[in-house]
């Protein structure tokens, strides 16, 4: 099965479970969790079910397109369901069957893995899902987001698409994976992988990056003061990505590192509270809508 068909299959499956199909968010980010469709929307009481593919940038993992397993940018298929359905494990296992993975022919396990992202003040409990010893999915019940208690609890399912595909397509090297008939990952992503690695490790302008970090931080704060949640959040994401670029280049010492992470976290925390406050001002509209449907 090509990656493209995997995406179509997963979209269909989760759409059938009532998920809104979203597109990737247009700001650089390290993980699908950081999309506002997850990080902000999983806050507060409003129900929210969504699925989308997120290209995720991890500058430090860039390997000039030479490593068979590591990528500057990989793809996650992200599902969020709030509140978490009672049969979520079954729904997930069904999705594997849709991908042609017959549980009877394999060894599928839910192995404890508690997820924590200090930069986002987020923590959750759950598992990594093993398919014959390979971690293919991160499965998390959010307990805290942006320093706020998650109530109700969202469940987050993150499929590592390249990982899963390398199993399904039985390939040793991610660049040999086929995106669709006749098109490999190498065709599409080799050049960007190489160039981004060069940029990250050799050509980026460190002074500019440091300046950008501060500017983005300023802008995020300025916008938060005006209660403009979503624009402010875009600048938090930019801060985070800029920090990742600096970190990958090795120009941030360990002591400074804690400081930078603290700055991003403090932005994430403020914005989490601000989001909930602003939604409350609007009367949690998606909650109301659900109530009306119940009445009808």
């Amino acid at each position: 099965m090509h990656i493209q068909d995997m995406i179509l299959t997963l979209q269909k499956h989760w759409s059938n479970q009532g998920c809104i199909l979203m597109q990737a968010y247009d700001t650089e980010k390290g993980a699908g969790t950081m999309s506002p469709m997850t990080l902000l929307r999983s806050l507060g009481p409003e129900p929210w079910n969504v699925a989308y593919v997120e290209p995720s940038r991890r500058p430090a993992d860039g390997r000039y397109g030479e490593n068979p397993n590591r990528l500057y940018q990989h793809h996650q298929f992200q599902v969020i369901m709030k509140p978490s359905p009672e049969n979520i494990q079954e729904l997930y296992l069904d999705s594997l069957k849709q991908l042609g993975i017959d549980p009877l022919k394999h060894d599928i396990r839910f192995v404890e893995d508690n997820w924590e992202n200090p930069t986002l003040g987020a923590a959750g409990l759950g598992w990594e899902v093993w398919l014959d010893g390979m971690e293919i999915t991160q499965f998390t019940y959010f307990q805290q987001i942006g320093g706020l208690e998650a109530d109700p609890v969202s469940v987050e399912i993150t499929y590592g698409l390249e990982r899963l595909a390398s199993y399904i397509q039985d390939k040793e090297n991610v660049f040999d994976l086929t995106w669709t008939e006749g098109v490999t990952l190498h065709d599409i992503f080799y050049q960007p992988e190489y160039e981004h690695s060069r940029y990250t490790f050799e050509e980026s302008n460190t002074d500019l990056l440091f300046k950008w970090f501060s500017d983005y931080e300023q802008e995020a704060k300025q916008l938060m003061e005006k209660a403009l949640v979503f624009p402010a959040y875009d600048y938090v994401l930019k801060c985070s990505h800029t920090f990742n670029l600096l970190d990958a280049k090795g120009v941030i010492s360990v002591t400074e590192r804690t400081g930078y992470i603290g700055r991003v976290r403090s932005l994430a925390r403020s914005i989490a509270s601000l989001y909930v406050k602003e939604r409350e001002k609007l009367g949690f509209p998606m909650l109301k809508k659900e109530g009306e449907q119940d009445d009808a």
Binding site: L104, D132, G133, M134
Partner: peptide, 17 residues
Amino acid sequence: NGNEDYLDTVAKGNEKV
């Protein structure tokens, strides 16, 4: 976690990892 059915597939998958 299971019986002996398809044990070869499971072993092969684990070898790959």
